[in-house]
Design a protein around this nucleic acid. Sequence first.
DNA 1: GTCTATACTGAGATAGAC
DNA 2: GTCTATCTCAGTATAGAC
Lengths: 207, 207
Amino acid sequence: MIETKDKILDSAERLFSEAGYAATSLRHIIAGAQVNLAAIHYHFGSKEGLLDQLILRRVDPVNRQRIAMLDRFEAEAGGAPVELEKVLEAFLAPATEMAKHHPEMSRLMGRLHAEGQVTAVFQRHFETTKRRFIEALRRALPHLDEREFLWRLHFVIGSMAHTLCSPPFAAESARDSWQVRTALLVAFLSAGLRAPAAAMKEVEVAK
Amino acid sequence: MIETKDKILDSAERLFSEAGYAATSLRHIIAGAQVNLAAIHYHFGSKEGLLDQLILRRVDPVNRQRIAMLDRFEAEAGGAPVELEKVLEAFLAPATEMAKHHPEMSRLMGRLHAEGQVTAVFQRHFETTKRRFIEALRRALPHLDEREFLWRLHFVIGSMAHTLCSPPFAAESARDSWQVRTALLVAFLSAGLRAPAAAMKEVEVAK
DNA sequence: GTCTATACTGAGATAGAC
DNA sequence: GTCTATCTCAGTATAGAC
């Protein structure tokens, strides 16, 4: 049956998001999907292959929206650099939109990120998005030299991943909507990115 | 023998940092330590108990240094709030110092963070440090209401964890010393934290 | 092409002898 | 304290039924 594949995906998505990737056995998944154990390996090759397709069907639409939004902003700017806040919003808004409509998937992404199961598949399908947004940010931040720019990018990624994937620091923050979170994050990140270059001439190499 | 425990800890630290927590079996560890499999369960109770003590012997000294440094800054300020940059430095400097002298441990912390194996033991031994630094930051940032303050804290934690635990975004950044990374991170975070309050009156609740 | 039944290897954990 | 033997359960591989 063609629906065997979907039954497996649905069961896996639910169980992974509830208990985490490592803690969910393939035998749990087949019990929920009412299929045979070997069907997973037939359709997906391995547990990791199953996870791969699970992530893909949620992440790909988000990345397409991100690029479409950036395309639109760049068209509006007509050759000039897109404003920093808009670049950040183009990256964050599609993700928060997904988080709003698929909260269980947001939880899953958080768990996967926490379990380090996300990097491999991300590397494979994130390249275009990554390149486009780095270019846009670079144009929006001409006051930084390349070294400082790359580090600030690193800092930004940390904040974004933590905000999109981890439960809020304080319990009361959980009541704030994704729109609010995004607005507060954009305010924070844009101020950090716009800060004057630290301009350290030091070229010391880590021992 | 009393040294059985240490042999296990040393072997585990090396293997965990090389291959990760999940990918390292207890049988790998005992092969490296030249001890019996059951000795791990006798001394540590479980694989997670072993990890717990492994983290502890590295994290506790860092947290003690952090608090000592904050104590010193607060004494110098004599009742006034400690300057934001100094609070951030008191938190980051001991960790980067550890990273400088125990790069393999830094790699291990990164792997553990990526594998989500770090939260449980951290919750248990991080309380005092957390409380002290939140208080100091709150006093350094009187312009933020509680809600925005908590979110910015969340953003800061994401950047810090990512910077301390993940390999740099760009290959060439790996050559920058821990002092440079810390200075750049402090500049970025303090600018973000000092940004005017976004002051959103919206009280929408996430659906 | 799809799916099932079953077996294989290696994991963490444990009981009890020494 | 330490070690042997064993248990249960994981992910994986394969042979063969439809």
